[in-house]
């Protein structure tokens, strides 16, 4: 790309806000009532983490794995790609995140067995993704039909995953984090370019998650014995 410095985010926006939001209406209509199942799965994930049921929490990773692969295929590959050709290049990353989460399930690599002072941030992000995000469409005049639901559309799925990962510990975390973070960033920039205030939801989720991770890292280092 020549004269790259002359390009702005607007130059890469291929669709209008109207076409973008209508896409959620069509997607919801096509998949209803699967929303009930994915939302229930999300609430069960939150419950399992809160109860720290050791034998059951490993299933959190598998449920998330299936939902990432499903959202990547059904939304990005089949739906979003119709108005954004770049979506076909992003969809494989949702598949990769799904595979990584499946690996985490197989090796029981995510643990939710410790209470930490930052947990409230994780629950806040997860709770918002499950119960707050669906309200944004009706609150902004787009109606319930255009609601974004966990496990059906990418933003609440990625935000919820940030919340879950903030509540988890394990060696795979550095591998599981980049794709949800990058998606939130990319989706936030897209919404901001369209002039949609909802962009700040994604940026706020990222900022909260960053505060949570930094806080946790500082605490962990502080509790290490001096060398």
């Amino acid at each position: 790309m020549s004269e790259w410095w002359t390009y702005r985010a607007e130059d890469f926006l291929l669709f209008s806000p109207r076409a973008y939001w209508r896409m959620f209406e069509l997607h919801n209509a096509a998949l209803w009532p699967l929303h009930v199942l994915t939302l229930a799965a999300g609430l069960i994930i939150m419950l399992l983490i809160a109860r720290q049921s050791k034998n059951l929490t490993r299933w959190v990773a598998l449920v998330l794995a299936m939902l990432w692969i499903f959202v990547g295929w059904s939304f990005l590959w089949n739906r979003y790609s119709a108005i954004n050709w770049a979506a076909v290049y992003i969809a494989p990353f949702f598949f990769i995140e799904g595979v990584l989460l499946a690996v985490a399930f197989l090796f029981d690599a995510l643990a939710f067995d410790r209470r930490r002072p930052t947990d409230w941030i994780g629950y806040l992000i997860l709770g918002f993704a499950l119960l707050g995000q669906p309200l944004l469409a009706p609150l902004q005049g787009r109606g319930w039909a255009a609601s974004e639901i966990f496990g059906i559309t990418p933003d609440p799925t990625a935000i919820a995953t940030l919340g879950v990962l903030l509540l988890a510990r394990g060696r795979l975390l550095p591998w599981l984090l980049p794709i949800p973070v990058l998606w939130c960033l990319m989706s936030g920039v897209t919404l901001q370019t369209m002039g949609e205030p909802q962009a700040w939801v994604l940026f706020a989720a990222l900022a909260l998650a960053a505060v949570g991770w930094i806080w946790t890292i500082i605490r962990q280092r502080g509790s290490l014995p001096a060398a």
């Binding site: 669709f15 209008s16 209508r22």
Partner: peptide, 12 residues
Amino acid sequence: WITFNVGNDPAL
């Protein structure tokens, strides 16, 4: 450009 990129939306 942008205006006709409405995907498979029958109404649009």
